[in-house]
């Protein structure tokens, strides 16, 4: 997993509440055997004017010009700004995979669905919870500022606006540690690699038939 320390990036505003995992990545794409490559189908139903199918050449599909991610001013966005209960629905990890593959490393919202919230951390995406009024202000700011950027500083737990205003956010200390160091669950477990090896060796001697 890539480290997350500081992110200075363009913000794309998705002004909707309750964006569910089916909207993030529609179910016809879940049969894929990959976890990468979902980016072109992120928000597929909103982003394109036709109905997307797996394996299609997305570059030739008709884009919905009014959808935020299709607007030139938000190209290259790495931060998604949205409303409450983002990521509700299924527990599958395809939703964070799609966001990550598109290029998003942080999502700012008033609240998140529980499983999606956990899945973000597992995949190196920082979900930032801010108050409703802070979110309102950010939407206004992004609307008024072409190619508006924000600086998200995980170490100091701050979102810095271009006007210098700083918004602080809370994050679980353990989760923060993992992101700062780029540890995923596997990375964490591998910190105990020596213990695992020692356990395995002892087991191999005591019950060698388990290792045939």
């Amino acid at each position: 997993m890539d480290k997350f320390v500081c992110l200075d990036g363009v913000v794309a505003p998705l002004d909707r509440a309750n964006v569910d995992t089916d909207a993030i990545i529609p179910k016809q794409f879940l049969k894929s055997i990959k976890r990468a490559g979902f980016g072109p189908n992120l928000f597929d139903e909103w982003r394109y004017l036709d109905v997307g199918q797996p394996g299609q050449d997305n570059s030739s599909r008709p884009l919905n010009p009014s959808f935020v991610l299709n607007q030139p001013r938000y190209q290259g966005a790495t931060i998604l700004l949205t409303r409450k209960n983002f990521g509700c629905g299924s527990s599958r990890e395809h939703a964070p995979w799609a966001l990550l593959d598109f290029g998003f490393r942080a999502v700012i919202a008033e609240s998140f669905a529980d499983i999606f919230f956990n899945n973000c951390f597992k995949n190196g995406i920082l979900p930032v919870v801010l108050s409703a009024s802070e979110i309102d202000d950010l939407f206004a700011l992004v609307e008024a500022t072409p190619a508006c950027t924000l600086l998200i500083d995980l170490e100091r737990q701050l979102v810095r606006r271009p006007d210098g205003r700083e918004l602080s956010f809370a994050v679980d200390p353990f989760r923060r540690e993992c992101l700062l160091n780029g540890w995923d669950d596997i990375g964490l477990t591998l910190r105990h690699a020596d213990l695992i090896k020692a356990f395995e060796e002892k087991r191999r001697i005591e019950q060698p038939w388990l290792f045939a």
Partner: peptide, 15 residues
């Protein structure tokens, strides 16, 4: 689940 399949592949362990 699939994340745990990967976890077992990589570490031979589960939390």
């Amino acid at each position: 689940g699939t994340s745990e399949v990967e976890h077992v592949l990589a570490t031979q362990c589960l939390l």
